[in-house]
């Protein structure tokens, strides 16, 4: 017994180092797997509060470009409104139970990274605003990511610039679909894999979300094809997609809630 205590006392530095290094390694491994519960995230009161107050100041510097983006979006929405052929094919008794499957919330990005291999954003909406895990996040130009952890007034978002992020996407002109991933290199280019060889792929084609997952509705723009090649087995294309979004300059985003997602996911669980 005496010897064990002596051993611990003699090696206390190393043991403490070993313990703390082990804890850090555990956190690191957890952060590399998708949606594992982890304690170290920036959706808490302290970091969210700090980022919020920094953002209150720094948002003034990008007011002009953000205004321009919002004005552009207004223009497209106005165009849609003018040209919409509203066809009423069913009558709703009251407007409250109006059955649209998607609900939108607005949010501001208060922290954005794009230089790491696993990037996360922090937004200023949380459980108080009924934001939950697996809600989609888009901007006026295209997709941004998926809500990961939610705190009281803040949430973290897995950016599409994250090597663990996998989002279903498809070609706009045909229904061939694949998975959108990122190889960690350029914040402008993401990779679309698993597009079958027979798909008509051409440079400059538009990529949109496929609506096959319960997170994003179909047709959210992603980007255009920058270059493509067949993979080693020569069965699937690996496509480099140039994003519509400038991921280095985003401020105002929309959170999408799919009201039917619970029902869809319960079908898969059975």
């Amino acid at each position: 017994m005496q010897q064990i205590i002596n051993f611990i006392l003699r090696n206390k530095n190393f043991l403490l180092f070993f313990l703390l290094f082990g804890i850090s390694l555990l956190f690191t491994i957890q952060s590399h797997s998708y949606h594992k519960s982890k304690f170290i995230n920036s959706a808490n009161f302290l970091t969210g509060g700090v980022y919020n107050s920094i953002n209150n100041i720094s948002q003034y510097f990008s007011l002009k470009s953000q205004n321009k983006l919002l004005a552009e979006e207004n223009k497209t929405l106005r165009l849609l409104l003018q040209n919409a052929n509203v066809q009423v094919d069913s009558v709703f008794i009251d407007t409250i139970s109006f059955k649209t499957p998607y609900r939108f919330y607005t949010a501001n990005i208060i922290k954005n990274t794009y230089s790491l291999t696993d990037n996360y954003l922090t937004i200023n909406k949380g459980t108080i605003d009924s934001v939950k895990q697996d809600f989609g996040v888009i901007s006026s130009k295209g997709i941004i990511g998926i809500v990961d952890k939610t705190g009281g007034g803040f949430s973290t978002v897995i950016s599409i610039l994250n090597t663990t992020s996998k989002i279903s996407a498809q070609l706009k002109k045909s229904n061939h679909f694949g998975t959108l991933t990122w190889n960690g290199k350029s914040p402008e280019i993401t990779q679309l894999i698993d597009i079958p060889k027979i798909a008509p792929v051409a440079k400059g084609d538009t990529i949109i979300t496929s609506g096959r997952s319960s997170i994003f509705p179909k047709g959210i723009p992603v980007g255009i094809i920058d270059s493509f090649e067949l993979d080693q087995a020569e069965n699937y294309y690996e496509i480099n997609v140039k994003l519509f979004n400038d991921m280095t300059n985003i401020e105002h985003v929309y959170i999408i809630e799919n009201i039917n997602s619970g029902e869809i996911n319960s079908l898969f669980d059975e």
Partner: peptide
Amino acid sequence: IDLFLDSGGIHAGASVL
């Protein structure tokens, strides 16, 4: 630093080392 960067435990591990 990890808390602010959402990076798991990478800064903690390197610093302890």
